[in-house]
């Protein structure tokens, strides 16, 4: 399903039917999920538009109320000044993005993964996060590439104490998602103090055969400025 298509196009498998078909002067977008809802939309284009179907930042469904993703896992202890890589799962949202005249727009977003939100920090100053509970793995686990992706998280303990970690919070505005045999993200979490940590995405694919997914959360791309998220309410 993932990839770029010229319209009109049609994709169908056991779980989903996606199509953009010509209907007179219009193009009709249809998404059907067996046992689920059917989405119909009309596109007004000359037919030169291109459609990308790929995983997008998983913070949009069921409604955009946040741009943070929180992944909770069984607590792990990391030694003072230690560096360790773990693998976690994250939920996937699939975006159907249309390109025309160098501009893009998400026509549709859907997911096969259950949705849940949480609050990171106090109710008075914390942030709403898209929540996902994951096991921890020492190598990339096998996943359903339409439901969950694999996050390679490098944990760096910069403190002289053991650190107990059970969650990571990531900012959707800097997510770099790649897809290939599975959907992947690479991130780094630096433990700064006993209560604060900093998370940051790494702009690299897990392997050379991975493609970069189209992002719908954009920021100014200034190479020298890294966008990080400071977890100031514990980890």
């Amino acid at each position: 399903m993932y990839g770029r298509y010229e319209i009109p196009f049609e994709y169908s498998d056991d779980t989903i039917n996606l199509s953009i078909t010509e209907d007179g002067d219009f193009f009709r977008y249809i998404r059907k999920i067996p046992g689920g809802e059917t989405i119909l939309k009309t596109l007004l284009t000359t037919g030169s538009a291109v459609v990308a179907v790929n995983p997008i930042e998983p913070v949009n469904l069921p409604k955009k109320v946040t741009h943070y993703l929180e992944i909770e896992f069984t607590p792990i202890l990391i030694e003072p000044e230690g560096i360790k890589i773990i693998y976690l799962l994250f939920p996937i949202e699939i975006g159907v993005i249309v390109f025309g005249n160098k501009k893009m727009e998400a026509v549709d977003t859907f997911s096969f993964c259950p949705q849940k939100y949480s609050l990171y920090g106090p109710s008075g100053g914390g942030v709403i996060t898209k929540y996902f509970a994951s096991d921890i793995y020492s190598s990339p686990p096998e996943t359903d590439r339409y439901c969950t992706g694999v996050l390679r998280l490098e944990i760096q303990n910069k403190t002289p104490e053991w650190a107990n970690i059970s969650k990571t919070v990531l900012d959707g505005y800097s997510m770099k998602i790649y897809f290939g045999p599975y959907v992947s993200m690479l991130a780094c979490m630096k433990i700064l103090t006993p209560t604060t940590a900093e998370t940051e995405f790494i702009r690299n694919p897990a392997a050379s055969d991975f493609q970069k997914a189209v992002e719908i959360y954009h920021t100014l791309n200034i190479p020298s400025i890294k966008r990080t998220y400071l977890m100031e309410w514990g980890y």
């Binding site: 259950p114 849940k116 939100y117 609050l119």
Partner: peptide, 11 residues
């Protein structure tokens, strides 16, 4: 409550 996405996990 668990199945409702907007009922927060934490708190």
């Amino acid at each position: 409550i668990e199945n409702e996405p907007f009922c927060l996990k934490n708190p």
